[in-house]
């Protein structure tokens, strides 16, 4: 089967500082995977490379078999990859409804059209409504996104990410800064919306990671030191060392 994401020999340096140092990683389609690692390991940078926000210094990135190295974020998104951000990244002055609709428009083929009226685009409205239902934000549809509560904004962020129907989803710390009950809610949401899709997420909350992930990749100082099932990752002494300095049980 063609891998959903395939990184081969990816390097990234900012000036003299190498952040990503030769990452090879294969994400099989239809799996939920987590990318973990200590602070500063380069997890977000790796996300930014995969999604085209930063150019790679060397190496290739393939998305569903297609080489996407050096493409712009918008072009990579059109090939079926969508992402969320560590810091909430929404359209603050537009309504909740419009935020989701922005995520829908391109995928329905509206592109840069100035011949269609968005309010008459029933397919876009329908899809938006559906996503709003999933997010439990239908009642807040007319509220400007900038005034939502933090947890709602995080949910909206996931909503924009999945609205376009991309089949490869990258989530960057979707539960960061959330309370326990909010986290549970988001995990449930992620499980729902990534049904049958490929998910790669950066996450610090280990209970979320072990709850959701089929496989876990561990990134330490810009290198993937392990990529395996949760059970084996838990038992891996190198991972324990990276996290705790001494080989022990992972937190």
């Amino acid at each position: 089967m063609t891998p959903a994401i395939e990184l081969s020999g990816v390097f990234k340096a900012f000036g003299n500082t190498s952040i990503i140092r030769g990452v090879n990683l294969t994400i099989e389609p239809g799996t939920r995977q987590a990318l973990i690692g200590p602070n500063g390991a380069g997890k977000s940078t790796l996300f930014n490379l995969i999604t085209g926000k930063y150019p790679v210094s060397s190496g290739r990135i393939r998305l569903k078999g297609q080489d996407v190295t050096g493409l712009r974020p918008s072009e990579i998104n059109r090939r079926g990859l969508s992402r969320s951000f560590q810091v909430t990244n929404i359209f603050p002055r537009m309504s909740v409804f419009e935020n989701i609709r922005c995520g829908v428009l391109w995928s329905l083929g509206y592109r840069y059209s100035f011949r269609h009226r968005v309010d008459a685009a029933h397919d876009a409205t329908e899809r938006t409504e559906k996503v709003l239902e999933q997010l439990n934000l239908a009642a807040r549809r007319h509220v400007p996104a900038g005034v939502l509560s933090y947890a709602e904004q995080r949910a909206l962020e996931i909503g924009i990410t999945i609205a376009g129907g991309a089949d490869v989803i990258l989530l960057d710390e979707p539960t960061a800064g959330m309370s326990h009950s909010e986290t549970e809610h988001v995990v449930q949401l992620i499980r729902e919306v990534t049904q049958g899709k490929t998910l790669l997420m950066v996450e610090h909350d280990m209970s979320v990671v072990f709850d959701l992930a089929d496989r876990i990749a561990v990134l330490v100082y810009g290198e993937v030191i392990a990529h395996d099932t949760p059970e084996r990752i838990r038992a891996d002494p190198r991972v324990q060392e990276a996290y705790l300095g001494v080989p022990q049980g992972v937190a």
């Binding site: 999604t51 926000k53 712009r72 974020p73 918008s74 072009e75 998104n77 059109r78 969508s82 992402r83 951000f85 990244n89 929404i90 359209f91 603050p92 002055r93 537009m94 922005c102 995520g103 428009l105 391109w106 995928s107 840069y112 924009i160 990410t161 609205a163 376009g164």
Partner: peptide, 13 residues
């Protein structure tokens, strides 16, 4: 206008 980066990641240049 609101967020050019986000617009890129929903498919728009």
């Amino acid at each position: 206008r609101d967020n050019p980066e986000r617009a890129e990641f929903v498919g728009y240049s």
